[in-house]
């Protein structure tokens, strides 16, 4: 079984995003960029399924600028077999990404597509579910455990009240939550080896997908800032404050 793993290049999760003064977006100039953390978890899960003998090949895909090659090389260094960059400088919305992935899935015929549940830049949490809809496949979102058994996959999901388990017919879409696994670091030899793994470059037009945005961003602003309050000296002073708040 082949596994498709879409990965996105995003602002590194350790960086505090700054809104541009002109209100057009977030300043990404000279900011550290990395693979979306949820996508790292997706790559790791695919590799584990390959190590278990469930998967035979892992294809990493990214829709993004030329620099997204670095993100794909990271996936290859972790253990993906080959990569496809669908190159565009435009910002591509989840719906269009899902359409591109659907077209790729038609060619590659994966048994599973494993995606991050959300990207930490636009925080949309949509692409996996949209891809499942377009492919007419079942979806196991927010996964904390994945077990493939014959022509089905059992997915344990993190939901508001706790955990939920669903069984899905393959091919299926899985989106990862934080506790699915802990992604490995690529070793230096594997980083070297990744440089010679195949990476194909395509364009959205190759898949016949119109990436024109449906949403227009009119403005981006800073949220209301909270300012630091006071520090109290001891527990008694804290109790007094709680009393003022009427909760003690």
């Amino acid at each position: 079984m082949k596994i498709l793993v879409p990965v996105k290049r995003v602002i590194d999760y350790n960086v505090k995003p700054r809104v541009k003064a002109d209100g057009t977006g977030v300043d990404l100039a000279n900011v550290k960029m990395s693979m979306n953390p949820f996508d790292e978890i997706a790559v790791e899960e695919a590799i584990r399924l390959k190590e278990k003998g469930v998967a035979t090949e892992i294809v990493a895909v990214s829709v993004g600028p030329a620099k997204a090659q670095e993100t794909l090389r990271t996936a290859l260094a972790m253990g993906a077999d080959r990569a496809i960059l669908v190159q565009t400088d435009d910002e591509v919305e989840p719906l269009a990404v899902a359409k591109i992935l659907k077209a790729i899935a038609e060619v590659e015929q994966p048994g599973l597509v494993i995606l991050g549940k959300q990207a930490i830049d636009d925080d949309s949490n949509q692409t996996g579910q949209m891809l499942a809809a377009l492919m007419g496949c079942p979806q196991g979102t927010f996964a904390s455990a994945v077990a493939v058994d014959g022509d089905a996959v059992t997915v344990t999901r993190e939901v508001d009240g706790g955990l939920e388990t669903v069984k899905l017919a393959l091919p299926a879409i899985v989106t990862t939550d934080l506790r699915l696994n802990e992604p490995r670091y690529a070793s230096l030899p594997n980083i070297m080896k990744a440089k010679s793994k195949p990476l194909a470059t395509k364009s959205p037009a190759d898949y016949g997908v119109d990436t024109a945005p449906r949403l227009k961003t009119l403005k981006v602003s800073e949220p209301p800032v909270r300012s630091a309050g006071i520090k109290v000296a001891d527990v008694d002073a804290l109790v007094a404050k709680l009393k003022e708040l009427g909760i003690a």
Binding site: E93, L95, N125, Q129, M130, A133, Q139, R214, L215
Partner: peptide, 23 residues
């Protein structure tokens, strides 16, 4: 924007060919 809402809405949006607004 509950776990059910987040699970279902994008599937609806894609079937309608609509780009969802989350949260």
């Amino acid at each position: 924007a509950t776990s059910n809402g987040k699970n279902i809405a994008p599937r609806v949006a894609a079937l309608l060919d609509v780009m969802q607004l989350s949260d």
